[in-house]
Each structure stands twice: as C-alpha cells, then as structure tokens.
C-alpha cells in the first residue's frame, strides 16, 4: 500500500542558490553537531518551492494547550516537560505490541527533511522544515494486523510538568486518530526535529505526528501511545465540540468552521499589514491525497 514518497520536481523547483547554500549550511551544522541524524534531500511536496518560516516563528507561536491556552504559553512552560527517557507504547491490532524506547525507534528509522505547509484550524499557517520518518515505517516495525482499520494516538499527560492540564480545557490526555490508509500515506510523518535540530518541547518533543493536509490539531504532539484499532477512535476536539471538529478535519477552503471562514488564512510572520492568502484544498496536497476521500461527501465527513 505505502510507496516511498517520491520527488516530483520540475524546473520550477530549483532552489535559489542562496537558499540552497543556506540549507547546506544548516544541514552541515546539524550533521556536525548531532552526528547521528542522517538527512535526506529536501523534497518538494508540490510543484512550487516553499520557503520555511524562521525558527523563531515556528517555536514561539504554538497551540499546545497542555502548557496553556496563550500562543506564547508553550514556549514559556514546555521546558518543564521531561522528554528523556521516552518510550512509545504501540498496542492493539499489531503483531509486536510493546513499549518502544525512543532511541530504539530512531536507530531503525531513516530521518528525512520534509518541508510542509502547516495550516491551523484557527486560519493561520506557516511552513515548517520538519525532520522525521514516515509513520508507515514505525507501524511496520510493530507489524499492523490485517483487521486494523484505524490508528489512535495519545499525548503524554503529566499535570506536574504540564500546567495547562490542571484545568479541564479539554478532556486530558489529548487523543487523536487517523484512518489506517491516512496513517500509512507517505506524506504522514512522525517528526523528531525542525531545521535539523531536536524538536523543541513546545512543538511536541520528542516525537509528534505531522499530517500536512489536515488542520494542525490532528498532528498530535509528544506521543506516548499508538493503538491500532478496528473502530474510529475518539479525538479530543471532536469530544469537546463535535459540531465544530470532525474526525477527518482535512484542510478545506469550502467547508467553514462553524465560527469562522476557512477560505483564507493569515500567514504567520507577515506583520500587521500582511495580506490574507487563499487556503488550498487539502492544504496544497490535493494531488497526493484526494484519492483517499474519493466518493466521500466532505461537508459531511469534515
């Protein structure tokens, strides 16, 4: 089912020299510093070059309600989270259930750079140069059984380290879910880094899901459990408000949030006078993922 993600570069994708040199420097720096992480070549997810947002933007403007509901709360509070040692429990309909230590997972995975658009359900967006591996590879490590249809994810819950969880903003722990074919799609990754550096706590350290064609809240952070099931798993925002947040939550400019339009978005970092940008179907990944939803009424399965 899952092919490796393949480049579909055109002449338009040739990276400007300055940006290219810049990226080599970043990679060289990261390789020199980390040594262990092996990075693939930059991939274009669409026939257009994406310019990643600065590190500062990506790591200072976050929704991670476990550390507070303000956009700057995660950057201020997330340092309290202990991310080592870390392990992920993979259970449910898998051949090799168990606790997988983070280092053991990393040792078996190929870390690649994936520059993806990131679109929040609140109608803002940024471009993030993630480092990570395909979720399919991790699921194959545990061996998905043939009766599995969905994947459920759970974020760590430690009230003593996560001040936001002391109030019941949501029904903690944060949980998310994907259909198995969405989870196995080559665009779906588990991110462990940004710009070649370890992913900061406020962005979901030590590893988080990234599903670039869905609203950001689907990309669950600091994952401690992955469960393969045959039933659609509950998801946090759907539990909190089912009329506003569906299980699928695919980026779709034609299906509005009940309280605001999703037709356009505000690109982070543009300042006070930046123009809104039109939102793209499936966040610009229509060619890659539209077939997953063939025949589905996307206004009903939003």
């Amino acid at each position: 089912m899952a092919r490796r993600w393949t480049n579909r570069l055109t002449e338009n994708d040739i990276t400007p020299e300055a940006a290219f040199l810049n990226r080599r420097q970043i990679m060289a720096g990261a390789l020199g510093a980390a040594g262990a992480s092996l990075m693939g070549l930059p991939q274009a997810a669409h026939a257009e070059a994406l310019t990643p947002h600065p590190w500062e933007d990506i790591t200072s403007y976050n929704n991670y309600y476990e550390f507070g509901t303000g956009k700057d709360d995660p950057a201020q509070n997330a340092h309290q989270l202990t991310t080592a040692p870390w392990s992920v429990t993979i259970d449910g309909l898998v051949e090799r259930p168990g606790q997988y230590a983070f280092e053991d997972i990393l040792a078996k995975m190929t870390i690649e750079e994936r520059i993806y658009r990131f679109r929040c359900v609140e109608a803002w967006s940024m471009v993030v140069p993630w480092n990570g591996f395909e979720l399919a590879d991790l699921l194959n490590l545990a061996g998905v059984t043939s009766d599995a249809k969905y994947v459920a994810f759970e974020t760590v819950l430690r009230p003593e380290e996560m001040p936001g969880t002391r109030t019941r903003v949501l029904d903690w722990p944060y949980v998310e879910g994907l259909r198995l074919d969405e989870a196995m799609h080559p665009l779906t990754i588990m991110a462990t880094g940004i710009y070649g550096r370890d992913i900061p706590n406020q962005n979901g350290a030590p590893l988080r899901l990234v599903v670039p064609w869905k609203y950001g809240f689907k990309s669950i952070k600091s994952v401690v459990r992955i469960t393969l099931t045959d039933k659609e798993p509950p998801t946090s925002w759907n539990k909190a408000n089912a009329r506003e947040y569906g299980f699928y939550s695919n980026v779709n400019p034609e299906v509005d949030h009940r309280r605001w339009s999703q037709a356009s978005e505000r690109v982070i970092g543009g300042g006070l006078f930046a123009k809104r940008q039109p939102t793209l179907m499936f966040n610009g990944y229509e060619d890659e993922v539209a077939s997953l939803y063939k025949g589905m009424d996307l206004t009903r399965f939003f």
């Binding site: 500062e56 200072s60 982070i268």
Partner: peptide, 18 residues
C-alpha cells in the same frame, strides 16, 4: 499597541494579538 505590533512586540502574529 499598534507600534508594538508593527515592531514585533506582540509576537509573530500581531494582528490577532492586537
């Protein structure tokens, strides 16, 4: 507040903060 927003004092998404 507008000056803060224009000079980065309201963070990377100043319009909503304002």
């Amino acid at each position: 507040l507008v000056w803060l927003g224009a000079t980065g004092g309201l963070g990377v998404e100043p319009v909503v903060a304002l």
